[in-house]
Amino acid sequence: MTKQPLLDVKNLVTEFIIPEGIVYAVNGISFNVNPGETLAVVGESGCGKSVSMLSVMGLIPTPPGIIVDGEAIYGNKNLFKLAEEEMEQIRGKEIAMVFQDPMTSLNPVLTIGKQITEALICHFDITKNDARDRAISLLDMVGIPEARNRLDDYPHQFSGGMRQRVMIAMALACDPHLLIADEPTTALDVTIQAQIVELVLQLKRQKDMAVIWITHDLGVVAGIADRVNVMYAGYIVEEALVDDLYEDPRHPYTCGLLGSLPRVDHRRERKLCSIPGSPPSLLVKPVGCPFRPRCQYSKEICQFETPKLRETSRGHHVACWIDIQSGEQISGS
């Protein structure tokens, strides 16, 4: 089984240099996503999940940000090595992105028709009229009523949920192979959230594209993802198939996240975890396990050595020195 992943990121390190020092935002993470698969990336605000995806897209503002190390293999190209012009050919066309806040992510002074068609005109040899027709069918597809009449409207004339639909239509304009959705529902009302999630799932099935879904909401993850990466302080601390993660969380942090999730539909006897304290300063290069100060299981080794991801069962990796079921340090290290 040597299926080649659609996107294969290895050892990504992204830092920001600001007057106060260096922000260690992403500290050497590796992940991949297969064609047609949905990967969820979960973590608290500021854990590096957005930064890692923006790094892949080449959207890190430089300065202050720099990609210090790593590679992102897409097809047979390393995205980090591409010239800006080559990257423009991939952005939007091969890999598209939907952002968190639809209120600020659409240009307020351009019509949404213009904003959708410009991507088409930029990537395909297509006339303006054809692009408009395509834009209308895209708006139809994402469920905007009377799409034809709304093409010349401006973003402020749409509600939040409708704007996010427009964003999705824009992202899907060029039939990308991979859609990166950066907390696309966070800024929306709860009822609208469900609609957007459902819409993306449906479109994903229709178009057979891969999706990376960034979120801090584990509740959303369960419904949509095939696999989950849990991030903490710029590290991936656990990766697993979605069911494995829910059934058998191996990292104290994941456990805490799941524990803080109110659930009525699940086994009650699972031990409730909580996460005291707050995330560490990203201005200090971490020594040892980044989660140690908040971890109830921590041992001496956690202070000095950063745990690497290790496989606990097939496809289930965790970066922790402790086996949380026994509470003992893992052997053989």
Binding site: S105, N107, E118, C122
Partner: peptide, 13 residues
């Protein structure tokens, strides 16, 4: 602004 990032993400020159 966010919308400039969106424009970049679309691959506009």
């Amino acid at each position: 602004q966010d919308y400039i990032r969106t424009a970049k993400a679309k691959g506009l020159p």
